[in-house]
Design a protein around this nucleic acid. Structure first.
Length: 331
DNA sequence: TTGTGTTTTACGACCTCC
DNA sequence: GGAGGTCGTAAAACACAA
């Protein structure tokens, strides 16, 4: 079976482009991990591909409306619009329907993940409120496509960008985060294509635009930097701490939901995938466990108060997070 | 807008384990 | 001794009521 999958690299078509962080905030609160409702899927189009290093990802993919020949993912059929939802699974990975992003969406990708998305709808005032969604006829076709061929359970990149359709207005991705000078030197996340593919790229405006988009996306992997990252210290007078992007938090939370203690290989993988140092990953997990303990303690206090239990001597236990055995005595 | 409380990064002190 | 754990805390970022 051969199916052309449209892989879209698009500009956000909204007049006020929303950043990745905003969208995640709106339907997938990383702090609580409440699975988003089914309806929220219609707020965004996501396209994903994996040309690099190992990582784990959650993916949402909804095809553009013109892709009538797209295969519908049988595992996650759309509840309302049977022809428009699909999941995309290049290179043996799988992607998911957003409503399941926190339950069954953990994906072991074999390659680095780059992610560019397009909002198809204005944000719903609530996740169940579809009254202000744009109708499908209002979807905008992205200006460039890249086709994959699906065969033998794999996707094969045909390595050709479509000719841009009438150019979109020039949209500058002026993220408030990540000055270019910072992320340019930070890592190798600007390798969205395999080496062999890169030299095949036409030096067209669409390709340059694509690169610009990838740079923008890369900025979403890069936290607000310290003023002077070169000195090796992040706690400076200028910048006491940086703020992680929602995607970084999301991936960290995802990992935390799998295990409260991160393994060394996973730490290295996350460090690479999220453009954070291993020390930052380690400390994030330490802080996250502390938060868990704090929340658990609070819940316990409430519970014990409700039970009017006067014997509260044991209420300081750390049951929220199970420590490694050799730390339990210390704790 | 401002004041205030909470959450998020980041670290030091101190500890255990290997 | 080094890595990584908890605990406590600083300060930035954020949320929100007034």
């Amino acid at each position: 079976m051969n199916t052309n999958y449209p892989s879209i690299v698009s500009l956000d078509h909204e007049s006020n482009p929303r950043l990745y962080e905003t969208s995640y905030n709106s339907y997938s609160p990383y702090t609580e991990f409440t699975p988003p409702t089914v309806t929220s899927k219609l707020e965004a189009f996501d396209y994903n591909y994996w040309p690099g290093t190992p990582t784990t990802h959650n993916i949402l993919a909804i095809p553009p409306p013109l892709t009538t020949n797209a295969t519908i993912d049988q595992m996650h059929p759309s509840p309302s619009t049977s022809q428009t939802l699909e999941t995309l699974a290049p290179h043996g990975s799988s992607s998911v329907y957003l409503s399941q992003i926190n339950s069954t969406a953990t994906i072991s990708a074999t390659h680095h993940h780059h992610h560019i998305h397009q909002h198809l709808h204005p944000a719903a005032s609530s996740s169940n409120d579809s009254s202000n969604w744009l109708p499908p006829t209002e979807y905008q076709t992205p200006d460039t496509y890249r086709h994959y061929t699906y065969a033998n359970n794999s996707f094969y990149d045909q390595s050709q960008w479509t000719t841009p359709t009438p150019s979109l207005p020039s949209i500058k991705f002026e993220s408030p985060y990540s000055p270019q000078s910072y992320f340019e030197s930070s890592n190798n996340l600007d390798q969205p294509l395999s080496d062999s593919k890169a030299e095949e790229e036409p030096s067209s405006s669409s390709y340059l635009k694509c690169q610009e988009q990838q740079n923008w996306f890369k900025s979403q992997l890069t936290p607000t930097p310290p003023k002077n990252p070169a000195n090796g210290k992040t706690r400076t007078r200028d910048k006491y701490r940086i703020v992680y992007t929602d995607r970084q938090r999301y991936e960290l939370e995802n990992e935390f939901s799998v295990s409260k203690y991160i393994s060394i290989p996973r730490k290295a993988a996350l460090s690479s995938a999220l453009a954070l140092s291993e020390r930052q990953i380690k400390i994030w997990f330490q802080n996250r466990r502390a938060k868990e303990r704090k929340l658990h303690k609070k819940r316990q206090n409430i519970c014990s108060r409700q039970l009017n239990n006067s014997t509260d001597a044991d209420s300081t236990s750390d049951a929220g997070v199970e420590s490694p055995t050799y730390y339990q005595t210390y704790a």
